[in-house]
Design a protein around this nucleic acid. Sequence first.
DNA 1: AAATATTTTTAGACAAATCTAAAAATAGAT
DNA 2: ATCTATTTTTAGATTTGTCTAAAAATATTT
Lengths: 214, 214
Amino acid sequence: MTLSEENYLKVIYHLSADLQVISTNAIADKMQTKASSATDMIKKLSEKGLVAYKKYQGVTLSETGVHAARMIVRKHRLWEVFLVDKLAFAWDEVHEIAEQLEHIQSEELINKLDDFLGNPIVDPHGDAIPDRTGKMTLTKQRVLADLPEGDGGHLVGVKDSSAAFLQYLDKQQLTLGSRIQVLEKEAFDESMVLDVNGRQKSVSQKIARQLLLD
Amino acid sequence: MTLSEENYLKVIYHLSADLQVISTNAIADKMQTKASSATDMIKKLSEKGLVAYKKYQGVTLSETGVHAARMIVRKHRLWEVFLVDKLAFAWDEVHEIAEQLEHIQSEELINKLDDFLGNPIVDPHGDAIPDRTGKMTLTKQRVLADLPEGDGGHLVGVKDSSAAFLQYLDKQQLTLGSRIQVLEKEAFDESMVLDVNGRQKSVSQKIARQLLLD
DNA sequence: AAATATTTTTAGACAAATCTAAAAATAGAT
DNA sequence: ATCTATTTTTAGATTTGTCTAAAAATATTT
């Protein structure tokens, strides 16, 4: 599989979390390219049996497509763990480098890396890491914004992994693993007052929508 | 710099160890491509100021070209140390993977990796690793085949890093660091009888030409 | 349901890196 | 020194992934 094919496959995989059928435009948007380019690549992925495709009807990943995509995601997230745990990168600095490392071709390498890291289950952003068979131990997570007053849990993941957002969380000392409880939920703007490890913090709904609790 | 440019640059750099001016054919051979392709790439590298080039007169690396090549070699060798020291790969298994990893773009990554590995000076094959400025602490090495009877030293490197040769050395228990002394040198075929860590071994001239002692 | 707007595909062009075949320059042989 | 052989370059074609512009299909609006 070429680098470009891998990137398209990964984009389709991530879009599949929200949509059952993926449109050409959705793919083109995520790839920051034109619809005509997306069509070309879709045809290629279809010929290789990685996606099911009918003209004008959008795309769905085949079983082999899902597996191939999971292997790329596995590599990406394992490298992120390496960068943060072993090389002391901050969690907002690792995405671009992992985007490159995820394309290194060697199953033995990635399995040895997995062992070296202690077979982690989640990456530095709380996202599940597929194991060498493609399975991921899903920790059913709830979005903070959906919780009622009084409810709470541990911060185990974030939906937005942009550097800007992660830096905001660092500044607010909202680190992965923090114990969070909803003290108040404002009716008019859905903002929340939280107890975070014993300290009170207020967050907007926009923020609360990005935080995942166990 | 594109992946292909980096590969050509590295090949020219390695050829520069033996030749003062590098011919188009020498480059094409090492790149396993055609002379016409090499000419095209030479022009591109020349336009970028990485090599000095006059038609039909061959190529030499410019100062910036040498530096760029050293940074690629630095990455390659540091990743090899990582694969052997941290992930427990054998020294004959790491070349292909390092060929991929050497193209990952991030100075911060490679410097952090350098620190993580303890700033090693040589890779698993005994080749010097350039530091972050491009300098390498050169351990003046002698080729075993050139030594007279009675002389010796420690095995600090190999000139041939092919998997086949490295596996042969493993089988012969000729590991990096071994204490070697020349007991006899046959006049007619230049083969040698060695003392390797107290045990006697015989090697052909072909082998002795590949082994570097301190 | 017809008209309009949007999405998707096709057709043809382009840049990068490669190739083959032929031409040009250099090197080697007599 | 000239002739031949080798090396190197050029010219033109090919592949991959992209683009623009136009055509075709689908979706939306009135």
